[in-house]
């Protein structure tokens, strides 16, 4: 908490409205919220099934898969950005073909921001959801099956409601991680107002010339983080405290 207090102490409150309502700040905030929302959606879409497989399947090599899923969590984000660049960049493994066949280049686009955020945030969702699935166990599903429910019905009516809190807290953590994403974004997507310059990128750039501006934007990120945590109220976090 203390470093955040330092931010509050350093803030130029009189200039706050002017600093936060600038074109650059508003467009960065909008871009950050939009990309973080899309990325969180992608995390649920891709990470959800993955978590189910990790929690329920008994196929060999599962431990290896889990380690790979966790990799972005322990990798420095800028390394993740470079990895994305060498996979999907214009001269990258896959990116070269995309450019050749469809004339599609991903770096410097909003899609690159979303990909970078999804990459770093996905483990948060998968870990949360997998934990919830394991805690929920299969007892209720078994009971549902004995009562004649099909696996699909049991999954929809029993499993999903049971793990919904875990899914929510995972999504909230993933969203928060997306909002704060910096390293992978700058390495993979670049920085351009309205297209790829999210709030953390703007903070990094503003501190070069206007420390007041950087502090104001940092506080904005703190406020967003606090709102996200209050709204999402992740169970795991409460359990830890």
């Amino acid at each position: 908490m203390l470093p955040v207090l330092g931010l509050f102490q350093r803030a130029a409150w009189a200039r706050m409205p002017e600093l936060l309502l600038s074109d650059a700040a508003l467009s960065a905030l909008r871009l950050s919220l939009e990309t973080a929302a899309i990325s969180t959606g992608l995390c649920i879409l891709l990470g959800g099934p993955l978590a189910v497989v990790l929690a329920r399947s008994a196929m060999p090599g599962l431990r290896t898969v889990r380690s790979i899923v966790l990799l972005p969590l322990v990798l420095p984000p800028v390394v993740g950005g470079l990895a994305l660049l060498f996979l999907l960049g214009r001269t990258g493994l896959v990116g070269r073909q995309l450019d050749l066949w469809f004339g599609l280049t991903i770096p410097f686009t909003t899609a690159a921001v979303v990909l970078a955020q999804t990459f770093v945030a996905m483990p948060f969702l998968v870990v949360s959801l997998e934990g919830a699935l394991r805690t929920a166990g299969r007892r209720y599903e078994s009971v549902a099956a004995t009562l004649g429910a099909s696996p699909a019905l049991a999954f929809r009516r029993i499993t999903i409601p049971l793990v919904l809190p875990g899914l929510m807290s995972g999504a909230v953590l993933a969203f928060a991680r997306c909002m704060g994403e910096f390293g992978a974004t700058i390495a993979f997507a670049g920085s351009l107002q309205g297209t790829t310059r999210t709030l953390p990128l703007l903070v990094y750039q503003e501190r070069e010339v206007d420390v007041d501006g950087a502090v104001a934007l940092s506080l904005l990120l703190v406020v967003v983080a606090v709102i996200v945590i209050i709204v999402g109220r992740p169970r795991q976090l409460e359990g830890l405290s």
Partner: peptide, 13 residues
Amino acid sequence: VSEEPDVKSVLAK
């Protein structure tokens, strides 16, 4: 297409 935070980032791109 991008305004980078430092000259080495430009070079890397």
